[in-house]
Structure formats: structure tokens, C-alpha cells
Amino acid sequence: MSGPLEGLKVLDIATIIAAPLAATLLADYGAEVLKIEMPGHGDGVRSFPPFKDGKPLWWKTANRNKQFATLDLRTPEGLALFKRLLPRFDVLIENFRPGTLDRWGLSKEVLWSIQPRLVILRATAFGQDGPYRGRPGFARIFEAMGGLTYITGETAGEPTHPGYPMGDAIGGLFGALGVLAALWKRAKDKDAPGEEIDLALTEAVFRLLDVLPVEFDQLGFVRGRIGNANGYSAPAAVYRTRDDHWVTLAGSTNALYAANCRAIGRPDLIEDPRFANNAERVKHASELNDIFQAWCATHTLDEILAAFNAAQGTLAPIYAIDQIAADPQAQAREMITRVADRDFGSVAMSNVVPRFMVDPARLRHAAGDVGQDNRMVYQDWLGLSEAEIDALKRRDVI
């Protein structure tokens, strides 16, 4: 074990992506995370494609660095075992609909009577109260009702979801951040009580769209879709190269605008009064984007990158995964690393972010099989005999 959270113990009883991702991030930073799944089928992400030899590849990275046990909390025996396990842990992460754990006999009062300093992260679609509290949710729901989907897509086109469940990823980040904030209070005060964190995943998406509420409040402005243009900077768009690659351009300051103009051999644009500052450039964004698009269309990707690097402009290639893997910066930083895996020896996945230079965190292993650590949990930790464990398994308690 290594990393700044070494010694922290996290119990993950959540499913699918957002809440388990919060636990995975804590595991990346060195926490010891036990993931408890339902006996038999386990977490639903195990059924998500893609597969290799029948093994789910997404699962391997989504729940990396964890230990895996099975337990049916809905049974009296399962509930009793859970209560015996709980004192070992500092953090509990769950994403059941509000009131579910209460109905199973695990209200926060019961949890805190067993572990008074327990930090409880509850992740739901809409939060623990309000008229939508009981509604189910997935990433597309969070993205849609959090405002992200409406502003994404072409101006005259349909609202567009990202090609990856970003609503879950955003929620996972806020979940991990919330847990760390609660732990800081505990670190400062040894007598601090436990904490209950109410993470509404729709609110997490909305929180990142900082400008929407203030511009609506003060200007009555409802932000819409503008494709790959930029509402606060120009020129800024996606351009096709002569050899059929794509690049993206940004840069809101006068200095960066000047560098971008020099990169395409148009220093005359720097002094043009229509483009004197960022506000004026945004007004004339379509003219500027046409100029930069026309230049890119007559140059190859390598020529464009060379020109902008020489001028210190702010343009980047739009990478697919094969290009990320081949990029020298990505290779130098080991953005992709290999991790031990039970099925394939090792598999590639993204590295820990951010880096801790004094106490480095590291990836230890890919996610494992349903209940693979049951013997360790129930025999080594709780002292059950092999006969007792086998009996629990026959009754589908574990």
C-alpha cells in the first residue's frame, strides 16, 4: 500500500458507476476499499461491454484497487455480518434510493451507534429530500436535468449527450471530494462525530456549469447550443486539416490571440480594430473562425502543429485513444500504465491523477471476481469457520 490515504478503510456497497467511482478514487490514493456485492451476479457494471473472452473490461478499471466480498444485506444473517464488519471502516459509500438502508435496519443512527465517526456518502439522482427523491437515475438523467445536454450539440441540431457517462464521472469526483472534506474535520478533531453526505448527482453536473444561473438571473439569458464554437472566446472552434485530422483552437487573451495569428501567417489580424480585444473578437467570431478554418484546410496536421508550436499558439490535435497512447508527453508521464490482472496477466488503464510527489499513490491491481475475497473477509477478519462460510454461501447470504 502507498499513497496519502494509506490506512483509511472504505466500505463500498454501491453499484454501477458514480458512487463506486468515488470509492475507486479513494483507493487510487491509497485507501483500503472493500466492495460488497450481491451474491451471484454482483454489480451491474460486470454486464457492461466491452468483453474479452467473456470478461468485462470496463469493470477491471472502474473498480480497480479494491477487495471483493459478497453479502445480502436484506437477510437477517447478512445484516448481522454487516454490523460486525462496520467497525473496521471509516467510510461507507452507498447509492440506494433514499430510505432503503433504513428499511433494512441500517439507519444512520444504527450505523453511528456501531461506528460513531463513520462518514456516510449517499449518492442518488436527486438527493435525500424533495419531490424527486425516490426517482431512479443514470448518467443521462443527470446530464439532461443538470443542464449539460441542452447546451451540447450543433446550433440547429438536437441536444447531444457525450459519448461517455460524464454525469457519473462528475458525480464520482464530487463524492470523493465530499468524503475527503468530511475526513479533514475528523482529522482536526478526534471527538468529531460522523458525517452524512447527501450527494445529488444531478446537482453535481449542474455545479460545474458555473455561469448558467448567474447569467440567467442577471441577464435573462438561456444558454443554448453553439456546436464547437466558444461563447466566451474567439477564434475558438474545431477545424479539419488537409489530411483529414481534426484540431481545436482556444485562447482568450490578446497575447494568445496574437500568437495564433502569427502561427497562420496573418499578423495583420492582430491590429485589426474588429479584433482589438476578446469581447470584440467574440462579436466577430464567425469571421475569425472562417479564416482559421480555411488555413487549416490547406495544411496537414504535422504542418499545423509545427506552426503553432513555433508561434506558441494554443491549438491542439483532437486525439483518439490510439493517438493518446502514441503521444510522447503521454508516454513520458505514463498517462497509461499496466496493472496486474487475474485474467489477462496485465491490462492497460489510466494512471492515478493527480500525482503525489512525496507519498506517491499507485495502482495495485485491476478489479476482480465476485466474492473473490470472501475467505479473507469472513474467515480472517470475522473468524468464521470454513463450515460456517460454506453454509452461508449455500443459503445465498454471501
Rank of each mutant, 00 (worst) to 15 (best):
V358K: 14
A391V: 05
F344G: 02
G371Q: 07
Q312G: 08
E334G: 09
A387I: 08
I324D: 03
D373Q: 07
H299G: 07
D380I: 02
G368P: 04
T337R: 09
H365Y: 01
S385K: 06
H365M: 07
A340I: 02
A366R: 04
Q312V: 05
T314L: 13
Q331G: 10
L384S: 00
L301T: 01
A332R: 12
L315D: 02
E386F: 02
R342W: 11
A306N: 10
T314D: 13
A325L: 15
A310P: 04
I304A: 00
P328A: 04
G371C: 08
R338V: 12
L382T: 10
I321N: 04
V358N: 13
T298D: 12
G345K: 05
A366Y: 04
A332I: 01
V339G: 09
D369I: 11
Y319F: 10
A307N: 08
V339C: 13
V352T: 10
E386T: 10
S350I: 09
D341N: 10
I389E: 07
V353K: 10
E334R: 13
V377G: 07
P354V: 08
Y378G: 06
G368A: 05
V339I: 15
L301P: 00
D359E: 14
A330Y: 09
L382R: 11
L382N: 11
P317W: 06
D302L: 09
Y378E: 08
D373I: 03
V370Q: 07
E386L: 10
F308P: 05
D327M: 02
L301I: 02
V370C: 06
V339A: 11
L384M: 12
R375N: 07
A387F: 02
L382M: 12
I324Q: 01
A307C: 03
A387W: 03
F308W: 12
T314E: 14
S385D: 07
A310E: 14
A311G: 00
D380E: 14
E303F: 03
P360Q: 04
Q372C: 13
Q312Y: 02
T298Q: 15
D322E: 10
L363V: 06
A391S: 15
V347S: 07
M349E: 15
D327L: 03
I389A: 03
S346W: 08
A366S: 11
R342G: 10
M349D: 12
